[in-house]
Amino acid sequence: MPSNLIQSMQPQTRTFELVNLSANDYKSGVRPVWCPGCGDYGVLASFSKALADLRIPPEQIVIVSGIGCSSRFPIFVNSYGLHGTHGRALPLATGVKMAQPELVVVAVGGDGDAFSIGMGHFPHIARRNPDITYLVMDNEIYGLTKGQPSPTSPVGMEKKASPYGTLETPLDPILLALASNASFVARGFSSKPKELTELIKAAMQHKGFSFVQIISPCVSFNDMTQEFKGATLPIPATHDPRDRLAAMKLAEHPGGMYLGIFYQQPRPTYEEKMQSLQDKNARADYDLPEMMSRFMR
């Protein structure tokens, strides 16, 4: 990973004490249901390592997910978890964060969950910019339902539900995140665990909504592991991650898939803005009788 990527990060203000645990201590003990060789194992390993490196107490972490193979993720992590309904990880996570801003909130899911059924929520969490990290494990396929094309599948993909090839153009999650003005946009790869760990750490240390598209191949229904290995390349060290247009150009790069941080530009978080709204309008003496008295004749 290029050295310029995580330099601008600020230390987080946390209300809890840091702990010293191994990556293994962040595993729940429930055995993952993923197929052998699934990219998600790599993501789980990198994620556990990132938590150990960041020294976050397990009880301060809430992992929220929707439905899909990768949405089983919270079950395998030693943390609090909320395994929601299909596509709804982001609103659930927003509720958690806004009610308890000191918690470390991570939303996880797959490309179907994020960009098909849950798509409507994506631009809005980017607009709000709560301090939530969103890890999307993108395998370009619906795995749990056994291999239907997803919003990121290439055009012409022949599957049981598209025996003559898909007609739709795939959407680009990085461009989508950039266009939505997410304050942190990155891409990682499950087969590059060290880089992925650093990327997850950078995302979690970013104050604001951080989006990481993680290429995580499905070995059973769309095994592109080798193709991806050949296609990925690191983002050039010369790239300025504060330049959104340059990031878009990188994302459009036809010759391969860049890995690393495309864009990072901190701005006030949703919970910070809410807090200042409350501070500005707070009235210590305001109570129910006074509220009621406004309706008295």
């Binding site: 909320l82 709804r88 927003t94 958690v96 806004m98 009610a99 308890q100 809005h124």
Partner: peptide, 18 residues
């Protein structure tokens, strides 16, 4: 919220924290 599903989702997320 951006829609009613998100509205209930957010309320449930908040409730999860107490």
């Amino acid at each position: 919220a951006e829609d009613e599903i998100a509205a209930l989702g957010m309320a449930m997320g908040a409730s999860y924290t107490g």
